[in-house]
Design a binder for these strands. Structure first.
Length: 446
RNA sequence: GGAGGGUUGGCCGAGCGGUUUAUGGCGCUAGUCUUGAAAACUAGUUGGGGGAAACCCCUCACAGGUUCAAAUCCUGUACCCUCCGCCA
C-alpha cells in the first residue's frame, strides 16, 4: 500500500514498476477511480457539514415552527445522503481494491527481468563437492538411514506429506536450536509466534494479492470453521495458517507507535510454516524439496524510515544467513531477485541457495526482503522521530534457517562412502554429542 | 459449548437521543512563581484524513440499522472478565 499523494506524484515510476514486476493492475483505471473517489468524498463531506450545522441550530430552537422547518431540511439532506452513500461505498471499495495492488518501486540496483531466470548471482561460497564413490541423493540416504518416510507421509497427509524419523528428528531439531541460539547471540529477540492467525497479519504483510484472501492464487491455508457459518455466508471468524513467522511477528507491532530510539527492533521467530503451494502444480513433484509444512527460524527487523539504514540492516541479516550456511558447511550462492521475481511490496530482495551435490541443483534456503514502508502502511506500524513526527517504519525479513531444505543439503554434502552421514560440528552439541549417523539394523523398518 | 457482566481519549472514569465543540481526575507539554527543584496557579493535550490558510470531514471496540439528529436506541460480530461443562 502506498500513499495516494505519492502515487499521483510518481506515475511514471509506478507504471514502470507495475510492468517490470508483472503486477496485475491497470494504472489508468486506478487514476480514474481516484478521481471518482475524491469527487464523491467531497460531495459527501459537503452534505455532512450541512447536516452538522443543522443539528447545531436545533439546540437554539424556540418555536415549534422553527423545529418543524429544521426537521424538513434535515429530511432533504438525509435523502441526498442516502442517495450518495451506496455509490460512495461502491466507488471507495473499488478504489481500495486497486490501491492495495500498487507495488513498491524497486530499488535502482534491482535487475529488471521477467522471472527467476533473470535473477543475478552476487556471490558464492564453498566448493561443489565431488565424490570418490557413487553418492546417493537425499531420498536414498533418508530411506537407507531411516530418517525420512515419504510413503507413509503421503498415506497420512497426502501429496507432499512426510515423516521425519530417528536422527532425522534430532538433526532437524538440532538445526533449529542452533539457529535459535545463533540469533540470540546476534542480539535478536526470540519469539514463538502464533501460526493460526486472523486475516489481517497476512493481508498486512502482503500475503494476499488483493484485498481479500483468494484461495485460487494465495498460497495460504484457510481453516474451515463451519460451525461459525451463518446462512451460507462465511463469518469473520476465518483463520489462516501462516507460511512463515513473519506475518505474526510484524503484526505484533501493528497499530503501535514506536520510539525512534528503540529502533531498529531486531527479532526472530521459530514456527511451523504451512504452504498450500497452490501455484506450484507440477513443480518439484518428486522428493521432499517442496512440502506443505516445515519449521523455520525467521529474522524480522523494524527499521526507521531510511533507505540507507534499512539497506544496512538487510545486509546484516543476509550476513547472518551466510554465516549459518558456512558454519553448517553448506556451499551456497546469494542471488539478487529481479523485478519479475519479486512480489509487489518488495523494494529489494535476495535469495540464498544451498548446493545439493547429488540432486545437482541449488535449493532456495532463504529469502531476504526489504519492504520499506509498504507493509508498515498496511499494518499501521509507526514511530515518532526526533522531531516528534510520526512516520511509517521500514519492515524487513530474512530466513535464518528452514528445517527441510538445509537438512537435505546436509544429507547429500555430509555423506560418507559407507553410507553414513557426518553431523556438522556446530550441531553435535544439540544431538548429545553425536558425530555420525549410521544404520543400525535393528532400527530399520517400522 | 452454556450463563451472566463488560469494551468511552496515553491512563482512570462520567455521560444512556439534540445544552457534549465527550464532565471530572491522573499523566504529559509549555508558562508564571523559584537560585534550582517540588508544590501551587494558568494554558494546552484522542487519533486519522483534506486544505496555503481560515477551516472542514471522520473517530466513544467493529459492522449494519432506526432517526431530521446516535457515545446514547436496535441487530450482528470481535475481544476481555466471572461462573459452569469439556479438555493437552
Amino acid at each position: 500500500m502506498l500513499d495516494i499523494k505519492f502515487i499521483r506524484e510518481h506515475m511514471e515510476e509506478l507504471k514502470n514498476a507495475i510492468r517490470n514486476k508483472g503486477v496485475d493492475l491497470d494504472f489508468e483505471e486506478l487514476l480514474k477511480s481516484d478521481k471518482e473517489h475524491s469527487k464523491l468524498l467531497q460531495e459527501m463531506e459537503g452534505l455532512k457539514a450541512e447536516k452538522n450545522e443543522l443539528n447545531e441550530s436545533m439546540k437554539k430552537v424556540k418555536t415549534d415552527d422553527e423545529r418543524k422547518e429544521i426537521i424538513e431540511k434535515g429530511k432533504k439532506i438525509k435523502e441526498s445522503l442516502d442517495e450518495l452513500e451506496p455509490r460512495y461505498k461502491e466507488v471507495s471499495l473499488a478504489f481500495k481494491r486497486l490501491m492495495v495492488r500498487v507495488p513498491t518501486i524497486p530499488s535502482k540496483d534491482t535487475p529488471i527481468g521477467k522471472n527467476g531466470d533473470d535473477n543475478v548471482e552476487i556471490s558464492r561460497w564453498g566448493e561443489q563437492k565431488k565424490f570418490d564413490f557413487t553418492p546417493k541423493d537425499y531420498m536414498q540416504l533418508g530411506k537407507d538411514l531411516d530418517l525420512v518416510d515419504m510413503d507413509k507421509g503421503a498415506k497420512v497427509a497426502g501429496f507432499r506429506g512426510y515423516y521425519l524419523k530417528n536422527e532425522g528428528v534430532t538433526l532437524v531439531m538440532a538445526m533449529m536450536m542452533y539457529a535459535i541460539n545463533k540469533m540470540i547471540e546476534k542480539g535478536y529477540k526470540p519469539f514463538i509466534p502464533p501460526t493460526l492467525v486472523n486475516s489481517f497479519p497476512l493481508f498486512g504483510s502482503g500475503y494476499f494479492k488483493g484485498l481479500d484472501y483468494n484461495p485460487e492464487i494465495d498460497e495460504i491455508y484457510q481453516i474451515a470453521s463451519s460451525d461459525k457459518e451463518v446462512t451460507g455466508e462465511i463469518s469473520k471468524d476465518k483463520k489462516f495458517l501462516v507460511g512463515t513467522a513473519e506475518p505474526s511477528l510484524l503484526a505484533y507491532y501493528s497499530d503501535e507507535v514506536l520510539k525512534e530510539e528503540d529502533l531498529p527492533i531486531r527479532s526472530f521467530g521459530f514456527s511451523q510454516c504451512y504452504r498450500s503451494e497452490i501455484g506450484s502444480y507440477g513443480k518439484d513433484t518428486k522428493g521432499m524439496y517442496r512440502v506443505h509444512e516445515f519449521m523455520k527460524v525467521e529474522q524480522v527487523v523494524i527499521s526507521k524510515a531510511d533507505v540507507g539504514e534499512s539497506t544496512k540492516l538487510q545486509e546484516e541479516m543476509v550476513a547472518i544467513a551466510k554465516e549459518i550456511h558456512e558454519e553448517l558447511g553448506l556451499p551456497y550462492r546469494v542471488i539478487q531477485l529481479c523485478t519479475g521475481d519479486m512480489s509487489a511490496g518488495k523494494y529489494r530482495a535476495f535469495d540464498i541457495e544451498a548446493w545439493l551435490p547429488v540432486s545437482d541443483r541449488w535449493a532456495e534456503t532463504g529469502s531476504a526482503s526489504n519492504f520499506v514502508d509498504w507493509q508498515a502502511r498496511r499494518l499501521n506500524v509507526k514511530y515518532v522521530d526526533k522531531n516528534g513526527e510520526k512516520k511509517f517504519a521500514y519492515l524487513l525479513n530474512d530466513t535464518a534457517l528452514p528445517s527441510v531444505r538445509p537438512f537435505l543439503a546436509i544429507l547429500e554434502n555430509y555423506q560418507q562412502k559407507d553410507g553414513s552421514i557426518l553431523v556438522p560440528e556446530v550441531l553435535q552439541k544439540y544431538m548429545g554429542g553425536k558425530k555420525i549417523i549410521t544404520v543400525i539394523p535393528a532400527k530399520a523398518g517400522i
